[in-house]
Design a protein around this nucleic acid. Structure first.
Length: 410
RNA sequence: GGAGACGUGGCUGAGUGGUUUAAAGCGCCUGUCUUGAAAACAGGUAUACCUUAACGGGUAUCAGAGGUUCGAAUCCUCUCGUCUCCGCCA
């Protein structure tokens, strides 16, 4: 949700931002049209109410009642306009920061840097699905038997690897000042909507619980953002650095092909998510910090990666800026997305009602940011494929060895 | 799952049909005093919309939605949430 003052006073600026994201700038015109009608109706009703109150003061209840009838009619009209106006308002995406690279799709994303050495194999590297099966640490057959395609079981060292990755991320984030949270894996629809996701309907990518307003979360961003919704925070308590451990559930409808193979695109995975509440002026710097933390985590794992800045067209509705990390995946011989960090500015905070009182007593909306620390499924893909040996074994990254309790699988 | 209580501003908390434009306290801001701070004292302190050159004026918002009434924080219905007791359960 954008600032209404910005929409009214600088519609051309907003339209430019909406167009840069590849959305229709007419969304802004439509909102302003409805806003105009809404304001006019509101004013009319207010004047009628004033009239009614004066008549009541004069004890002319008959005349007051007649005015009330008029108000009722106008209110019906207002109610409809209000819903349309709000929907139009909500459908306008956050606008990108001014220095975001232009572009329509992921092809226009800017590669900022490449870090680490790609491993050289004197054999043909296998992909993680094949390695996982032969090592007996991933069981796709049982997964699809029990829950369908896109589900899996982890087994033996696969389980230990998953838990090690979680523990590695949590320990690292604790050292960096984060508060740890284990969040619910379900949340009410209202929190999806206010974080910028569509929980139901054709665009939905999440699972919902029938007969309730609950859904399985696609990311802990939803629950972590909800913690301080409708709250007035203390400026001195900002920034709040939160690390959330949760499972994530995604329908991934229509996804298939070689890049969806194995663990890469699944319906359920575990993720440690970073989430930050801060003051407006601090969000760019904290966004860089989240990116830095992601890079440190992947450097620690010893896996080559590259950093991408998303172009305006590939930002998603909530984000004003976004960076992805893509890890090298020898099994496919290509890069694969493993983390994503977004600065959503005050877009989520407005919907969620997250405010803070500044030193001068003024109330402002907070800024929120999110970033992946570790999504275990994709981390496992990268580890198996980068650390494989000629014999089909897999070495364990040194930072994980103390958690797994061994140096090699197989 | 059953029974009951409750939901008021940044916070605590009065208020059960009509000077409530929501008491009071705390917090916060400004001023006086002070070398500075504290204390004390004085004033201020929500959001949205309309109106006004400005001062100001008006309307709405007491968890949310609907209803009763000339008039609702207050009465009624539903939803959401919190708490207490009982039951069940890892």
């Amino acid at each position: 949700m954008l600032d209404i003052k910005l929409l009214r006073e600088e519609p051309e600026k907003v339209k430019k931002g909406v167009a840069a994201k590849g959305d229709d700038p007419k969304l802004v015109d439509e909102f302003l049209r409805l806003d105009e009608i809404w304001r006019k109706l509101t004013a009319e009703i207010e004047n009628l109410r004033h009239e009614q109150k004066e008549l009541e003061g004069e004890r002319d209840f008959e005349a007051a009642k007649a005015v009330k009838e008029k108000i009722k009619e106008k209110e019906k009209e207002l109610g409809m306009t209000e819903t349309e106006r709000r929907n139009a308002w909500m459908s306008i995406p956050n606008i990108p920061f001014e220095d975001i690279p232009a572009g329509k799709s992921e092809e226009d994303n800017r590669i900022l840097r490449e870090v680490g050495e790609k491993p050289e194999f004197d054999f043909v590297p296998k992909d993680h699905a094949e390695l996982g099966k032969s090592l007996g640490i991933i069981d796709f057959e049982s997964g699809s038997k029990i829950a369908g395609s896109g589900f899996y079981f982890l087994k033996n060292e696969g389980v230990l690897l998953e838990l090690a990755l979680v523990r590695y991320a949590l320990d690292f984030l604790t050292e960096n000042g984060f508060v740890l949270w284990l969040t619910p894996d379900l949340a009410r629809d209202t929190f999806y909507l206010s974080t910028g996701y569509h929980p139901r309907g054709p665009e939905a990518q999440t699972y919902t619980i029938e007969g309730s307003d609950l859904g399985l979360i696609a990311t802990a961003e939803v629950t972590l953002a909800g913690i301080h919704s409708d709250e007035m925070l203390e400026e001195s308590a900002l920034p709040k650095l939160y690390a959330g451990y949760s499972h994530c559930f995604r329908q991934e409808g229509g996804a298939y092909g070689k890049y969806s193979k194995g663990l890469y695109r699944v319906h359920q995975f575990t993720k440690v998510e970073m989430f930050v509440y801060c003051k407006a002026g601090d969000s760019p710097e904290l966004h860089q910090k989240l990116l830095w933390l992601e890079e440190k985590l992947w450097q620690g794992l010893g896996i080559p990666y590259r950093v991408l800045e998303m172009c305006a067209g590939d930002l998603g509705a909530q984000a004003a800026r976004k960076f992805d990390l893509e890890a090298w995946m020898p099994g496919r011989g290509d890069w694969g997305e493993v983390t994503s960090t977004s600065n959503t500015s005050d877009y989520q905070a407005r919907r969620l009602g997250i405010r803070f009182r500044g030193k001068d007593g003024n109330v402002e909306f907070a800024h929120t940011l999110n970033g992946t620390a570790v999504a275990t499924s994709r981390a496992i893909v990268a580890i198996l494929e980068n650390y494989q040996t000629k014999e089909g074994k897999v070495a364990i990254p040194s930072v994980l060895q103390k958690y797994v309790g061994k140096e090699i699988i197989g």
